[in-house]
């Protein structure tokens, strides 16, 4: 194991430019998917948290989406968008949607109704209540959702290399093609580290916005 790791390290340094580019692509894919998903799901989640009928159907759809293996969703983009970057980030965005939506919906739904009533009773407008009271209280759970989505997307972005996007997954495909464990590791280790780092950062962020209990 040790010497394979060493070889992997050497390989990475030998192909430093390519590696950094792959890393950049990976981060771009992840960032883009998360960004779009957040922009769609947070407002949507606020809307669903306030209704009952619409919410049930929407939440059910997204719950079912979560159950479907990510590889299936990734590959299903191919017949439509081919083996390309576009396929990758559409699929990744779709994968990021469920946790963020469901968490946003739950977050807003579970705010103590007494607090919402008092906010109105004191003379806040709907907008003021949303921004000054509801949003700060919902934030920790929303961030938890984004955190789940982040780890998920980092993993799936690796798989996306199979469908023709760039990212660190290129080392996985290459490693398989050339039967070389070391090259596989050049993909696997950074991805693992990236996932762990993201989890740590987002946990800390979540704790930071949590009001003291």
């Amino acid at each position: 194991m040790g010497e394979t790791l060493l070889r992997a390290y050497e390989y990475a340094t030998d192909h430093q430019e390519e590696f950094l580019r792959a890393l950049g692509e990976h981060l771009l894919l992840v960032g883009l998917a998360l960004g779009i998903a957040t922009l769609i799901c947070v407002p949507l989640g606020i809307v669903t948290s306030r209704s009952r009928a619409v919410a049930a159907t929407v939440i059910n759809i997204f719950n079912s989406l979560r159950v479907v293996p990510s590889l299936a969703i990734l590959f299903l983009a191919i017949p439509y968008f081919g083996l390309s970057l576009t396929s990758a980030w559409i699929a990744l965005t779709i994968l990021a949607l469920p946790p963020i939506l469901i968490n946003t919906d739950t977050a807003f739904r579970t705010i103590n109704p007494a607090i919402k009533e008092v906010a109105y009773g004191m003379g806040m407008t709907g907008q003021q209540r949303l921004w000054r009271v509801e949003a700060p209280l919902a934030l920790p759970v929303i961030i938890a959702g984004i955190r789940t989505a982040t780890v998920e997307v980092i993993a799936s972005a690796t798989l996306a290399a199979f469908i023709g996007s760039g990212g660190l997954g290129i080392y996985v495909t290459r490693g398989f093609a050339l039967y070389d464990n070391a090259i596989l590791l050049v993909g696997a280790v950074p991805v693992a580290l990236l996932a762990l780092l993201a989890e740590m950062v987002m946990s800390r962020l979540q704790r930071a916005v949590q009001p003291p209990a």
Partner: peptide
């Protein structure tokens, strides 16, 4: 937290 594909490779 480690992506499954990464773990699979590490276990190879």
């Amino acid at each position: 937290t480690i992506p499954s594909i990464a773990l699979m490779i590490l276990l190879l």
